[in-house]
Write a protein that binds this DNA or RNA. Sequence first.
DNA 1: TTCGATGCAAATGTTTTGCAGGACC
DNA 2: GGTCCTGCAAAACATTTGCATCGAA
Lengths: 145, 145
Amino acid sequence: MAVRAVRQAGGRATVALRCVVAALVDAEGHRSAEEIVGVVAGEYPDISESTVYRTLERLEELDIAYHVHLGHGPSQWHLAGWRSHQHLICHKCGGVIEVAPGLFEPLSHELETRYGFLADVGHFAVSGTCMRCAAVGGTGAHPAG
Amino acid sequence: MAVRAVRQAGGRATVALRCVVAALVDAEGHRSAEEIVGVVAGEYPDISESTVYRTLERLEELDIAYHVHLGHGPSQWHLAGWRSHQHLICHKCGGVIEVAPGLFEPLSHELETRYGFLADVGHFAVSGTCMRCAAVGGTGAHPAG
DNA sequence: TTCGATGCAAATGTTTTGCAGGACC
DNA sequence: GGTCCTGCAAAACATTTGCATCGAA
């Protein structure tokens, strides 16, 4: 359990920490820090915004939680187990498509082979135009240059 | 020239617009909005921050300039012609590696075939650990899940 | 008992907006 | 001359920080 890992690392299993972890477990996917603040505040109104941010930071250092950038909005947080997928985000409708991680493996492998770069391909979403929006309003894709 | 395209679209070729375009041309790559504000202010101190932001937005609508997200900082702007490369950003040292766009083509093709998604792979950088940082401090790569 | 964690409030940094006036075509 | 663009200032938004206090181990 996450709480145990925190204690093993010399951290303290406070109410706030349990609350944030619970909010992430409950999310079954990703949630923005703002949403987590809201969920936590629903149960414990005394837990402040800054504590939630500091707790998330703490969890990330311990590899218990991560954040990803899905678009121009706030970053999204999730537990480590939920990392095994990538996101496509449509810049027209804002829709998010989750894709299997296997699709990105050839790219990761190429980047490692050619540049020695260990890619964390899920950290940023791939921007573009989804099928529906492409059908409606032209390609919407940016020209190559 | 960019100014002509603006006029053709019914826009006006103001001093501010010329200045912002010049700053982008001069950049020979990408520059943050903040930097552009600084460059423009160096020549025309009267041109305000908000005008620069509004001008960049205008240029993006006309497909003259684009912005990309290289990391957690502010977005980076460049002229359309500079789009033909992708970025790898090291989350340890913050270094940026530019890679040829060809590497991403198989992925783009797969996304289009399988999901009908027209990817704009350059809009977000690929996060990860560069060779040097990996050699120094372990992998640094996030576990798959 | 100690040092990490917290609450509050204020600051941060980037970007957006309202509105009245000015400039471009 | 119409309306698109601009300057100023203030707001919006997500996140961070300082500092005194509290509490888990």
